[in-house]
Design a protein around this nucleic acid. Structure first.
Length: 316
DNA sequence: AAGACGAAAGTGGTTGA
DNA sequence: TCAACAACTTTCGTCTT
């Protein structure tokens, strides 16, 4: 008996990690990121492989100290491949003669600019990789252009403020995406974003709070109404149900029973009630599944809302 | 047989000392 | 850093359709 349950549980968690629907011929290896990816869905299948490429070089003292692995190995797409001429510190010309003071100052300027341009280029490379990551996430999560651009802007600000240093690009990008979703009322949960990213949920959540705090972004409270259209379409429900569910949520909000509750759970309960009222019944299980909560939560919210709003449920 | 319900214990995250 | 806490999940027994 208990053995049966164990096996069931294992199977379930495996399904969560790997899509069995990915045919072998679709699996491609992304050497730069060290991942096996399903070419048709973009799903990362195995990501703990170590890239054989060189570490990033340290350009500035800070970088030297950290020597963090910020990106992929150098590639031909990087403008100088790290091999550009360095203006050295000896103030002599090619024949070893000392430079005149005027010339010396000139070279001093050159050196300064060269260093600056290199820091600039590391910034660019960081951005390039981040945008690559953003592109990937956007495609999987079906983000619209506005959200994507918002995320890019947020990420740029984060880089400018030096918030990425010491954190992985992926987690900061994921956090930026989440912030953008919230700002644009685009219903994607943190869990969904975390699921499709290498960074784990905890790390993303931490970055998210950091971004909100450091960039002074005022994120509107998650509004359950934003979730309705998405859930309803996943359940093949009519616009009428959506409208009813939205009205229920609006009333529930006025009764102040929505504070501190999981917005997805609230939306799920509202939809459940709406289906009962409109005669398009779905089971709690189905609704809970698309909302990413359990039946129990749907039930609890459902009970609260019905009693608070004194709704008449057909067949009660 | 499947769905709904609810009690009880467990989990992960937040808050405040 | 730790404990208290609220919300949510898991699990399971029971009732209803």
């Amino acid at each position: 008996m208990s053995k049966e349950f164990e096996q069931k549980g294992e199977k379930k968690s495996e399904e969560l990690l790997f899509s069995s629907s990915c045919p072998p011929e679709d699996i491609v290896f992304d050497a730069e990121r060290g991942e096996y990816i399903c070419a048709s869905t973009g799903e990362v299948l195995e990501s703990r492989l170590v890239s054989q490429g060189p570490e990033w070089r340290a350009f500035t003292p800070e970088e030297k100290e950290k020597r963090s692995r910020v990106g992929g190995p150098l590639s031909p797409t990087v403008h100088d491949r790290g091999l550009a001429t360095v203006i050295d510190w000896r103030d002599r010309d090619a024949s070893g003669k000392k430079l005149e003071p005027k010339k010396r100052l000139e070279f001093l300027r050159y050196r300064k600019w060269q260093i600056r341009s290199r820091i600039q280029s590391s910034y660019d490379r960081n951005l390039a990789q981040a945008m690559n990551e953003l592109e990937k996430i956007s495609n999987i999560l079906r983000l619209n252009k506005a959200v994507k651009e918002e995320a890019a802007i947020i990420y740029r600000k984060a880089v400018e403020r030096g918030l990425v240093r010491g954190r992985s690009i992926e987690s900061v990008v994921a956090a930026a995406v989440y912030v953008a979703c919230r700002l644009k009322h685009f219903p994607r949960t943190l869990d969904e974003i975390a699921y499709y990213t290498k960074a784990n949920r905890k790390e993303i959540a931490r970055c998210y709070r950091l971004l909100v705090r450091e960039l002074q972004i005022k994120v509107p409270l998650a509004n359950p109404i934003d979730y309705i259209s998405r859930m309803a379409s996943l359940l093949d429900l009519s616009g009428k149900v959506m409208k009813t569910a939205a009205e229920i949520l609006q009333k529930a909000r006025e009764k102040a029973i929505t504070a501190g509750k999981d917005p997805a759970g609230l939306a799920a309960a509202a939809i459940y009630i709406a289906t009962l009222l409109e005669g398009e019944k779905k089971t709690q299980k189905e609704i809970a599944a698309v909302a990413g909560v359990t039946e129990v939560t749907v039930r609890n919210r459902y009970k609260e809302i019905v009693s608070q709003l004194k709704l008449d449920i057909p067949g009660e």
